[in-house]
Amino acid sequence: MKVLFFAGAKDVTNSTFAEVPQVQSVPELLEQLVALYPQLSPILPTCMLAVNLEYVELSGKDADGNEIRLKETDEIALIPPVSGG
């Protein structure tokens, strides 16, 4: 499955996206990401995650508190805050 990197995540990985093996849950996905890009681990807890352009908590819950299940076709985005101005 495809994870898009934005801003600082793009900078530290030096890529705009990652292909990670299919997983079911957000915590598993984050594990896969750190395995591929260890340099993501310090910024990961400060990032926002979006699945199909919708906010998801890093714990894997959506805004209503429901655990989300990931699908192969989902577009996942890792979005650290941009603080420059």
Binding site: G8, V12, P42, Y55, P80, S83, G84
Partner: peptide, 20 residues
């Protein structure tokens, strides 16, 4: 609500270093 945790200081790139 969106960014509850501030980023570690040494991971923050500013315009001074990163450019814009």
């Amino acid at each position: 609500c969106i960014f509850p945790t501030p980023p570690p200081a040494d991971t923050v790139t500013n315009c001074n270093d990163g450019g814009v």
